[in-house]
């Protein structure tokens, strides 16, 4: 569906992207993650057709972006990180504007606007000015503007920044509906739990390079194995160390051993024998955030 082939982009002396290649299947939800300044935004700009000068190529349905840019743009709905709406106009006016930009006309456009307003839950506020909307409503309208032309690919750049959990949940529902309808989604976010929740494959960019790419389960398996988390009074750290590497995590300890399940049994028996009552003793499944820190480190990137 989408083939990114050796994309490189340089700004002066800075190599923003360095020979990035990957493939996204039709109907997939692809998560793009990376620290600040890693090159994510540049890649999103290239994928959405905003940035024109770069090395390499991108193909959508075998159409090359260098030759068939307009055809590709007609199939892409881009949801930018910034809220790109005309604040002094109504929600319907904004949707009408973007509908025209995507070459929708008259009755078909009005019908589609009604459908999108229902999809984003703003049908009752269609005639209200955007300036009167909450952050979550603006975010939803921002998404709606990208869905009018029923794009087969939806590119979302941090669509949930600065909104309440209800609005976030509503946006997740929209994304899941899009997936059900067969849309391919490219989703960029700094919220790892969102990417983990929504996406089936991941690309991790760091220093302009594709540091990791693959299915979520494969990456979790490759970079992190389950460990054991134990918290409570009287925990014997020396005893835990006899099973593997122990590190302090929050109120308890994280124990990395070769066979976490077996270790769990042994620790449980030990606690019973010693009359120790941990309030948490559980298998700790690694998360995308663990892989992210494992691959990119914990040092600040905005210095």
């Amino acid at each position: 569906m989408i083939d990114v082939k050796g994309i490189s982009k340089q700004y002066g002396d800075i190599q923003a992207l360095d020979n990035i290649s990957f493939h996204i299947d039709e109907g997939a939800c692809f998560g793009l993650v990376g620290p600040n300044g890693a090159g994510k935004s540049t890649l999103m700009k290239i994928l959405s057709g905003i940035l024109l000068n770069f090395h390499g190529d991108m193909e959508v349905n075998d159409w090359s972006v260098s030759k068939e840019r307009l055809k590709i743009k007609q199939r892409i709905g881009y949801v930018p990180q910034e809220i790109c709406l005309e604040e002094t106009l109504t929600a319907r006016d904004n949707l009408t504007l973007f509908g025209h930009l995507y070459e929708l006309k008259r009755k078909a456009l009005q019908t589609r606007i009604d459908e999108v307003l229902a999809q984003i839950g703003l049908q009752d506020r269609a005639k209200d000015k955007v300036s009167t909307f909450s952050g979550g409503m603006k975010r939803r309208l921002n998404i709606g503007c990208a869905l009018l032309h029923k794009p087969s690919i939806v590119i979302m750049d941090e669509p949930t920044v600065g909104i309440d959990p209800q609005s976030r949940n509503s946006i997740f529902s929209i994304i899941q509906e899009l997936q059900k309808d067969g849309s391919t989604i490219i989703y960029s976010s700094h919220y790892m739990e969102e990417v983990e929740h929504l996406c089936d494959s991941i690309g991790l960019i760091d220093n302009g390079k594709l540091a990791e790419f693959g299915r979520m389960e494969d990456l979790l398996e490759k970079h992190a194995s389950p460990s054991l988390f134990i918290a409570g009074e009287g925990i014997d750290q020396d005893f835990l160390q006899s099973f593997g590497k122990v590190e302090r995590k929050g109120t308890g300890y994280l124990l990395n051993s070769e066979d976490s399940l077996q270790t769990l049994e042994k620790v449980a028996v030990h606690c019973r024998e010693q009359d120790i009552h941990p309030y948490r003793l559980e298998l700790y499944q690694p998360r995308l955030e663990d892989i992210f820190f494992h691959l990119t480190g914990t040092q600040l990137r905005d210095m």
Binding site: P80, E82, I83, L101
Partner: peptide, 10 residues
């Protein structure tokens, strides 16, 4: 970002 947003359309 409206300029970039418009540039992403056909």
């Amino acid at each position: 970002g409206m300029v970039a947003r418009t540039a992403s359309t056909p």
